[in-house]
């Protein structure tokens, strides 16, 4: 199994390093031809506007969307989660998106960098509190019927959700030493 990591911009190396420590082979995906070589894909944190534009420029948006709709497991962290949402709130009006998951994403939902934070959060299917890192993070809202909420903050705001073979997290497990969410994704 080869796990693709979308490498247009952002923290793709951190995901690769985590997967390598777990003994999993990875491949950086920048062009449509790379996509054919991977079995599943992680869309990393970064700037969702930048990644979205590069997806369009290199004609990756449509083939990637088709692969996901055909059942390829995909996991978006932060910017990746924004790109997967059916609607982006507080984004640029023309911001390109994959629109594959039945949930909305609110960009920069906590404020500026001064409001970035770390916290212990309970995640469904993970047997211990997960140490989360939120960086200018989005929150997830209005999940559809097919979408299962995996984690919320104490005030009820959604920060992780799953829909069949698709996983979205507002936070960054790749910035921690805890591989349990990576393991969860590999089990899809």
């Amino acid at each position: 199994m080869t796990v693709g990591v979308l490498a247009l911009q952002g923290a793709f190396r951190e995901h690769e390093e985590m997967l390598h420590r777990m003994g999993v082979a990875t491949r950086q995906v920048r062009l449509p031809r790379d996509l054919a070589e991977v079995d599943r894909l992680i869309i990393p944190g970064g700037e969702s506007t930048t990644i979205g534009k590069l997806l369009v420029m290199y004609e990756l948006l449509t083939p990637l969307r088709e692969r996901i709709l055909a059942g390829m497991p995909v996991w978006g962290t932060c910017a990746g989660a924004i790109l997967m949402a059916r609607r982006i709130v507080d984004g640029r009006p023309d911001q390109p998106a994959l629109n594959v998951m039945d949930i909305e994403a609110r960009r920069n939902a906590f404020g500026s960098q001064l409001d970035s934070f770390e916290a212990e959060v309970d995640v469904t299917d993970i047997d211990h509190p997960f140490h989360t890192v939120f960086i200018r993070a989005p929150i997830l809202e209005k999940p559809g019927e097919q979408c299962r909420v995996l984690a919320t903050l104490p005030d009820g705001r959604i920060v992780a959700a799953r829909q069949a073979h698709m996983l979205a997290t507002s936070f960054h497990p790749e910035l921690t030493n805890d591989s349990s969410i990576h393991e969860l994704f590999l089990s899809f």
């Binding site: 490498a7 911009q9 970064g46 200018r136």
Partner: peptide, 8 residues
Amino acid sequence: GLAQMLKG
């Protein structure tokens, strides 16, 4: 971490 997100 924010700098890590700006990479590339």
